[in-house]
Design a protein around this nucleic acid. Sequence first.
DNA 1: GGCGGCCAGTTCATTCACTGAACCAACGGT
DNA 2: ACCGTTGGTTCAGTGAATGAACTGGCCGCC
Lengths: 177, 177
Amino acid sequence: MALPSTYADRNCSLARALEVVGERWTLLIVRDAFYGVRRFGDFATQLGIPRAVLTGRLKHLVQEGVLVRDDDGAGTVEYRLTDKGIGLWPIVRSLMSWGDAHYSPAGVKRALRHDRDGGPIDPDGRCEKCGAVVPVPEIRIEPGPGFQPGTTDPDPVSSKLNTPKRLLEPITSAHSG
Amino acid sequence: MALPSTYADRNCSLARALEVVGERWTLLIVRDAFYGVRRFGDFATQLGIPRAVLTGRLKHLVQEGVLVRDDDGAGTVEYRLTDKGIGLWPIVRSLMSWGDAHYSPAGVKRALRHDRDGGPIDPDGRCEKCGAVVPVPEIRIEPGPGFQPGTTDPDPVSSKLNTPKRLLEPITSAHSG
DNA sequence: GGCGGCCAGTTCATTCACTGAACCAACGGT
DNA sequence: ACCGTTGGTTCAGTGAATGAACTGGCCGCC
């Protein structure tokens, strides 16, 4: 985003946060990272984002410490959320919740559950069964009542994204899956 | 923002929410609305946003039911948050909180308190004194330890924004204040 | 050891949106 | 009649997004 040159808003953490995750596409990339997407190509096809833009956004996110770029030396590159990136979860959750509440009359598109006890997670991120704020790796995501299966048959990555799974669990594309 | 023409992501409420509040400036406008800003000119000077862009964003937000445009017939126009707009509070709060946590080593720039009992509000939006999720109109906002007073002396609206006050309480610009 | 496929990333011409400053019209007060 | 305030609009210049084609490293395979 890069705020106006004259950084009028030195005292707003919201503006500061938006400099990191406020640009177009960025939060969608982060969301996919929560869903387990790690590969450049998977982000690209999943989001339909121009590759040049994706390159820039990933660089920015790595620079800001939201993602780490893990290059195994043999040419396999993976982007993974850092702890700082995982800290974005409440933002992603509350945006999804607001979107569901106002634009998905048939019910939530993706439901969240506490993987340990199966309890539903309320809009505040608490498990309705055990009452605890559920840590990200213990969250299971699955299609909700508002979910609409696509008309065209999905690529392998999409179908995995639409299957119940825990957050952060890697999605492997193509051959290795 | 207007997602890619081919709306690949029909099943993502995050994408849907970002269509409404994901464009540059939009969440800053919403934040200012929480702070009590209501006038076109105040948004413009406060944010340093080009007026043409502000016009477009306000129109969009009104269209989406996040703000109402209130024209008293005598030429006085006010933009106010609707209930749907107030529903964005958890998003604004969690973004501020993330920004403070990672970019404000001296402490939060703005502190939130439950106006009724003075209890501090935790990152989840709960009053640490009474334990309740604090409704927006009961939230008092005030400069925190990370707040940096500006070098240039502020316009009247800014100084009011930097004074403890409750959310949604209107800020009146210039003469009437 | 050359071939083909996969993958991350670049290049580039086109289109689109933002920027910033100037301008305009309605109203209020004097 | 005139001036200041307010909510916009207009417009040329600039920068960023788009989308499709391309590059180059690495792999397995014959």
